[in-house]
Design a protein around this nucleic acid. Sequence first.
RNA 1: CCGGAUGUGGUGAAAUUGGUAGACACGUCAGACUUAGGAUCUGAUGCCGUAAGGUAUGGGGGUUCGAGUCCCUCCAUCCGGACCA
Length: 1198
Amino acid sequence: MEYKFRDIEKKWQEWWSAQKIYRVMNASTRPKCYVLDMFPYPSGTGLHVGHPLGYIASDIYSRYKRLKGFNVLHPMGFDSFGLPAEQYALDTGQHPAETTKKNIATFKAQLDNIGFCYDWDREIQTSDPSFYKWTQWIFLQLFDSYYDRQKNKAENIALLIEVFQKEGNVRHPIPNLAYRQAGPQFRIPFFRADEWKDFDEKTQQDILMQYRLAYCGYGEVNWCEALGTVLANDEVVNGVSERGGYPVVKKKLRQWYLRITEYADRLLEGLGKVDFSEAMKEMQTNWIGKSSGAEINFQVKPPLTPPKGEDTTPKYQTAHLSLYSITKMLSEEKRKNPTPEELIMWQLLLANKTGFHIRRQHIIGTYIVDFACLDKLTTIEIDGGYHNTPETLFYDKERTAFLKANGFTELRFTNEEVKEDAGIVVKKIIEFLSKLPSISRISESSKVSPLGGDLEGAPMLKVYTTRPDTIFGVDFMVISPEHELVEIITTAEQKASVEEYIAHVKSRSERERMAEKKITGVFTGAYALNPFNGREIPIWISEYVLAGYGTGAIMGVPCGDERDHKFAKHFNIPITNIIGTWYNGEEANPTKEAILENSDFINGLVMKDAMEIVISKMEELGIGVRKVNYKMRDAAFSRQRYWGEPFPIKWINGIAYPLDEMELPLELPHVEKYTPGPDGEGPLANIPEWIHKGVKIAKQSESSEVSPLGATEQSEGWERSSLEGAWALETNTMPGYAGSSWYFLRYMDPHNDKAFCDRNISDYWNQVDLYIGGTEHAVGHLLYSRMWTKFLYDMDLISFDEPYKKLVNQGMITGKSYFIKAIGFLGYKIAGDIGSDPNAKTWYIVSNEMKEENLDFLNPKILYSTSWIRLKYGHQYVNSDGKLSKQNFEKYLRERPDEYLSVNHSSFLIKWDNRDGEEYIFIREEVEKMSKSKFNVENPDDIVSKYGADTFRMYEMFLGPVEMSKPWDTKGIEGVHRFLKKFWRLFADETKGLIVIDEQPTPEELKVLHQAIKKIESDTERFSFNTAVSAFMIATNELSDLKCHKRSILEPLLILLAPYAPHIAEELYYQLQKPPQTPPKEGLRHTQSQLDEESISKENFKLAESSKVLPFGEDLGGASILNASYPKLEEKYLIETTKEYPISINGKLRTTLNISLDAEQSEVEKIVLENEVVKKWLAGNPPKKLIYVKDKMINVVI
RNA sequence: CCGGAUGUGGUGAAAUUGGUAGACACGUCAGACUUAGGAUCUGAUGCCGUAAGGUAUGGGGGUUCGAGUCCCUCCAUCCGGACCA
């Protein structure tokens, strides 16, 4: 009886599949366990040996848990939307649906070949309408929700509309204050209830868009005009497209976003309750990038230009020039529609009745105040009740801060006070104003700023800093080239160079800009004023400041920040030292411990203590506010592509309307061409039906009719009537991570057409207990799916708010690539006679280490160049020491004539090295990511057919820890294969067949078994699969030495092995059970269905009744090892009485001694000091000390 | 540039808590069986040295009776950085 792995594996794979033995029930009395692999993208190149690493690990764990009595969900499916399929379609004209289908078939065949225990009945594919129907459905929920900051959870947007109707948005400020859409309403981000009601629908919808968790905005993309398409960051190299090398620029396009920033804090907190590696948590934490500091307003010293559009120059110019026309419009509007209280007040304050000149709805900066007495630098506000709630503080604070910074005092009264007795209010105002001096008496000019600047047109530069303590060390400001102020503040002299610089920056990707080492930048000509001392600070623009981060502006503190320091040195900006000796003039010192100098009111303080003081002072003076900042930005959720989920959104008159739930799924139409649409739109924009009329109604009666979009309509008893009308469907599609953000839920209930997942079922399966995948998903997929889970939780659609309880990151398997050294010469030709054609090139292939000058076999030549040529598939021909023999090279030329040194070197001479008659060259070996494009991939199918799936599984595990990346090398696989053969020989002999006997085991044999149980169980539990495999080897070696063939030892060992090598285990288990040899032991077997019905208690396990029949007729007894139960560790077999102690002298091992484990210090000292080796080292002297650690070691100190 | 990870024999690695560095394999060498060996079995194998012994976990420094493990510092390699998934 030989180990015929091919037959065995085929037989059991078929049987398992025919028995549906991996079917998983959604109800069981057994504890549940959900094991998931990261969603694979079915690429056209199929799996390589690196991919299954994690799948094998999770499969082992799942099988192990099943043996341990768990109901295990371990599904597999495909993330089948994505760019590569579309790119392939562009290149070859094949429809992505077709290629995807093909690819999935390949993947499944490859996966099945390895013997995974997937329940394929639960397979899902993101590109399947029955799946993406629910992706669209969840999108609609996101679209229909906003984040309520008071409740700290998502809520339906209908609630927000109610609030707006009652009180406007004061308690619910627009989440992203920096965001401004065109139109005057958004210049001032607050409105009252009456204003809300007066907004037209477009305005209302635009405002709501600012709150939706899935919203539409504008974002920059890499735009390639020549290709007419948007490119991924990695498709852009050095500012040109990777394909074709065409120029790429930044372009603003309409985009969908997910408001993930609202979840930033909860995503951060959630990390506390999940079992992810510290590295992973750190990466996510850094990505979210929460920091606290201050947002500081710097006034820009403006070029004095009078406002335009006003016939007379007003005496007091207080409006922000850049937005003046807009704010003016708004203020006029407000004047026309005063609240009753404002009206009362105005009548009392009007026309100098008070003796002071009071204006109403006056613009100061970008703010509109209710009333203002400019002569006294006083503003008067009549607040609705909600102004007293703390929630509005931040807006008010900002406004107050601004007004304060510009010398204004704010008087506030409530509506109630006015209603009660407006006279008293007016009296108070008069009293207050009387005490103040008039500014006309302070100053002749109209300047009203306390700093002496002019409010007229004076823009503020907002800067976020985590180091407010360095405020007096600010020597320059840098704003991003995209910053809105650039245009306003650049002086005429600097205009040309600024524009030139911006053009340069536009061509560069964000990554390039951050990675750039060269210091670039240009001075705008403008100066900001330090709010504390009025010092003038030059404002620069530079690419290293990105518009999307913080406020898009930084304050440069060269003595404390390395990058700022280099910038200052490079542009010769004088450096202010605020940290004395901590700064050496050569290098910035980012310390927080230094004692401040040259820092006005914080001199002498330690920096970290000064931070708080500066922030308080700034808030007091209204210069700035304390602020928490996040690096994370809202997630771009649309792609200008074809092969993705269509958005269930229709546009009518510029307003986005959701499709009705009944209209889902909105199927992806069939297209003939995948070329991009006009103006950077996706391919869907090329379909007239899509953008003009939408889907034609398919009546029930004509349900089989194919709509103009190619999708076959299902007749579900509803009509798509609302889809009629003059409107357009959204032409963007969703990105790859849409489906993968929630797919783990769908596996629980994959065929449900009433809901994305039945609530009872998701309550049962709950979180994923073990999630295995690569670190490359650390921040993308993992954060998004965590956010979606929190959202679904907020909506009370699921009962948990973290998707993955434990995450294990598998390492990469890297491949080895080989490079041949070729030296080229000019002037020689090798065809036929060696001539002297001066333009010909001759290439010599030489050993790795060969130097040009050592090529003595040539006459002196003109060196042309040296190049390294990739030897494609070199790993199949090169020895592990990098030696390529002439024989193998010839084989290579025969087998792969087309691949032959693919570079355009027409001809070669090879300079073989020679030893022992063998000709060879050494070639360079490099470890690279395993990838088709690097021609170093290894297909698992090849390994499986050569050694079997069990060997492959165990070898991948044996390579090293799952988390670690390691190079693939087939050499070691022999050892694992040998082990399986040796294991087989414990059970069966080539000639005698099964040799298992029923004899009492010896203590020695029991010890081997129980050591194995202990080691393998704990190793499996902690995902240390490589050491578990070696434990199997040790046990097998020891049992072979003991010549043990006893059933009571081997059968438990077999169950231990089953998760790792399921085929051989099932076969041997079957052989063991097979009558007539010995009847199987009572209690070891049970069936899945019994387990689901019965209690988990082991006593209830019964022998399977039903005989299951193999497809090929053989009776297999129905007792699969899959349903066995895991052997139990008996510590009593492991007890030791003595130990071979290592004896060290001064920490160095000199000998070992066998000493009883319960020996005391004194006994040990006696034994050790009598030892010859120890005596020799002591040389007659007494030891200084003797350290004895029980069960560990003994150290003699001399 | 920012962030993360990893450095141990010729190779993959082990050492779970500061306690015998290199388990288990590959490879190599020697031997047995054999018509044969890409089967199987036995032995050796970090490096230097005949040996005693010395030396060794990327480099340097520190803490400790004792450091691969803890601390400081430097170096190298790999991975990720928002439209590849």
